[in-house]
Design a protein around this nucleic acid. Structure first.
Lengths: 360, 360
DNA sequence: TTGAAAGCGGTACCAA
DNA sequence: TTGGTACCGCTTTCAA
């Protein structure tokens, strides 16, 4: 008869020893606990616990013996139980969307790497189209995560509710207007200025912009900074069409730019690389133009395919690895010391000259 | 003085009421528990618990009152504590690698969607280069996940250790030779046969293959099936070079194929789309060949960029969404009923004709 | 329907 | 260094 927990009923009551319900013996085998190990090793349960704690006080002899016995019995500490008492789940929620884009998977990958380095696991909340956030937030709370990395838009109220529960949040490449929050971003303004400067220096004067969706802070920054810089150069007429950050909208975007003015612009500034790629393809295959001879196209992000020989996109590459590293540092600091004030870290992007634009 | 737990020390012992250590009052505010709600509502703690349990017996009146008070107090049930007693974490471990590839992010995205639909959260284990698995496995165990989805190679021993702990595992697009396991795969053999048949029918006779890394089961299946089918047609000479599933190795692969034989093959069968894209670019930009007029190129997967006008890869698209759905169904069934026997589901891929190959 | 009490599997404090 | 004990916050019998 398989042993059950040893402190359930006073022994006198053990008489009617009938299995309560026909237990399907296959699956119901309970896992080995520290109590089991303790009994087998002839030590207390707390001793076992200490043997598995890095700094725990236990003689080398006992430690070795207990760990060996634990190993034999197939014991693994229960992280859930530990979290309950330590109030530390070692879980970090990553709120992310557009996992099918080219950019976010790289972000997630880097976040995961750096999280592991800090001994944290990632609880993934992949939101379909940045929606459903409220219900998701509730889930995040329930799991008692140590912290949150938000690569999606959050409302002020949502941020507040995390703060109320003392759960630190770090935004990735976005932030909240008028509310001090932790954030790690790539400097879009500077990137846009560099691109425009080099394009202007090459003699380009007619600019078109393929923007991202209105609700993308990053996208809007890129577009505004581009236009602002052009204005500084005295270029006032800038045609803008809107896309959705995807290939097709980049492709459609160029055709729309053609319709807006009588003539096509000399440059298409696209709010991300994927649209730039779509735009390049539209130029070549739809409009039979040469890139960059007849049209310069630039993007943002520096995603993998932007380096393919077929496109060689001129772009501002985000230092995603560094950004992820900074994100985790920021977050872990806040977890260790909840009193720290909000902080933004703005990392510079890097110009990748590519071959899709003539630069001066 | 903030209330602490109300059952710590016999009252007689409360005299030396000095704060133990200077508690940094800022962050240490404990979250609201069901006890707090119970006290405020004037009901028992277990009643509160029942009010939050879907089938729990509680009068409608009480349920409503308790939930309202809970809402006011900002109470959220603690999933960690719940898991401890229910032995159900509602956590599924996803073991995955190559998140920077074009294929796996889509997989992860779909898995996440379907997991949510089943009320499960994803605990992400993104492995750098399919390595470090053993240590990772230990982490998976510690978190008491309900089940595991493995999109990486696991050893027989690793699978065994999950089985010993009654944690169901479903493989995604891979499995273990000679060990019965749960798996959802796309039919590579059939896909390869279809491609070869259509290529042969178009009159192609000289075939080259750019294979994936040796340790990729899927890659090897594609290559073997391709060669086997060619043999059936009497084509015996098939040049094979190896790549690493990335763009550069596809590009290099074509050049190597050129060196192997005196003449380039008429077809390059690539073990995935990204290599096919690299191969197409090598043909066009390195060797100045036209695709598909001078060289037919085919791939596997049907990743997003394979549909771009610049490449329009002829490929076998995997039904990733369906596969993810099947994976979760399989897994949830095993979680609910650990006795179920291992099962493999093989889904058919879909030929995308594209424009990178002449088909008959 | 409700409340009391016994855990779930650990950690941490305390005294020995 | 060790063992004893009181919890972490919840679910689940069991009586009332």
């Amino acid at each position: 008869m398989p042993r059950r927990k040893n402190r359930r009923v006073p022994d006198t009551f053990n008489a009617p020893a009938v299995a309560p319900i026909a237990v399907p013996d296959s699956g119901a085998r309970h896992p080995v606990t520290s109590h089991d190990v303790a009994r087998r090793a002839g030590v207390s349960q707390s001793a076992v616990s200490r043997c598995f704690k890095p700094g725990g006080s236990a003689s080398a002899k006992m430690r070795e013996r207990v760990r060996r016995i634990a190993e034999e019995m197939g014991y693994t500490p229960n992280a859930i139980a530990r979290s309950l008492i330590t109030r530390r789940s070692n879980l970090i929620a990553v709120l992310i969307s557009n996992l099918t884009s080219l950019y976010y998977p790289e972000v997630l990958s880097e976040l995961s790497n750096h999280a592991s380095a800090h001994g944290e696991r990632i609880l993934l909340f992949a939101l379909p189209q940045e929606s459903d956030v409220d219900q998701t937030i509730d889930q995040v709370m329930q799991y008692q995560v140590d912290g949150v990395i938000a690569a999606v838009r959050l409302s002020r109220e949502q941020v507040e509710s995390f703060k109320r529960r003392n759960i630190p949040v770090v935004f990735f490449n976005r932030y909240l207007q008028d509310v001090p929050v932790n954030a790690v971003c790539c400097d879009q303004v500077d990137g846009a200025r560099i691109l425009v400067s080099r394009l202007y220096a090459a003699g380009h004067r007619r600019f078109g912009v393929i923007a991202g969706p209105k609700d993308s802070v990053v996208g809007e920054e890129r577009v505004h900074a581009t236009i602002a810089r052009l204005n500084e150069y005295g270029v006032r007429q800038v045609q803008v069409v809107r896309g959705g950050f995807d290939y097709e909208s980049g492709r459609r975007g160029l055709r729309e730019l053609g319709k807006l003015a009588q003539r096509l612009p000399q440059v298409a500034v696209c709010a991300n690389d994927v649209m730039a790629i779509g735009c390049i393809d539209a130029a070549r295959y739809d409009l039979k133009l040469r890139v960059p001879e007849d049209l310069s196209v630039v993007g943002f992000d520096g995603v993998g395919p932007s380096t393919w020989e077929s496109h060689r996109v001129t772009t501002i590459r985000q230092p995603v690895g560094r950004m992820a590293e900074a994100t985790l540092t920021l977050l872990m600091d806040r977890i260790a010391n909840p009193g720290l004030p909000p902080e933004k870290r703005i990392l510079a992007g890097q110009l990748i000259e590519g071959k899709s634009a003539r630069l001066g």
